[in-house]
Amino acid sequence: MNFLLQLLNGLQIGSIYALVALGYTMVYGIALLINFAHGEIIMIGAYTVVFSIQLIFAGTDIPYVFAIIPTVIICTLVGMLIERLAYKPLRNSPRISNLITAIGVSLLLQNTMMKVFGAQSRSVPKIFDHKPIEVFGANISISTIVTIVVTLVLTISLQIFMKKTKYGKAMVATSEDYGAASLVGINVDSTLTLTFAIGSALAGVASLLYVSSYPQAAPLMGSMLGIKAFTAAVVGGIGLIPGAVLGGLILGILEALTKAFISSRLSDAIVFGLLILVLLIRPGGLLGEDHKEKV
């Protein structure tokens, strides 16, 4: 019983890691850039949830979950803006410049938000206003169920989008070769912007689900979440959509089981140690191949 409960706890946090990892893996798979600012987009999403509920939804009959609309819009815009202003001018520079820029953007966003809204965290109203559901005597919160379902639905639709639509195919082509893709008439610039737009929209969804379980928005909330999700993406095989989900769920479940049955104080050390082991055995990640990176 306890084991099952803990497994569910792991699935809950794991599906959030998975959702965030999807954004990392999308951008890496196509633009070959580790977008360190991804965690900060989630932070901006969380603030958007807070403010849109306070300014628009409070006092009306609209359920708070509709805050997803402004949140996804703002996150997408911010993601596209970052790509256009910070990454596009450096497209032909060495990769390390891009990496440093990404870190710079991440710090810039953190500190700007801290200056504007203060270092204190903001509380988020209850988004899913339901009592926990009882299954076999265990209480499962609504947000856990919603998070898991949404993650699965998004993964599958993303996979279909990449494989079946023209835009998806253009993305795959761009990821294989910028030059060749533009030769056959693909607009590389807008394809890359679209990649960031989708990645950031996913971050918007993730931020709403995140604050529905952990109802606080704070300027630094994205950094640790970002590291864990990035780790999940790498473990699953970065650049691979199913890999991000697998990595996220494994990370969440490993964390939960370590905390529950080994030690809640050493869990990070043990979990990250295990993950290094995984990478030593399968350097490309669980689903990755050793030399090819693609979406």
Partner: peptide, 15 residues
């Protein structure tokens, strides 16, 4: 126990 950056305590609380 938990670490400074943790936000999820469900596991510890379940235990």
């Amino acid at each position: 126990g938990y670490g400074a950056d943790d936000v999820d305590f469900a596991v510890q609380l379940t235990n």
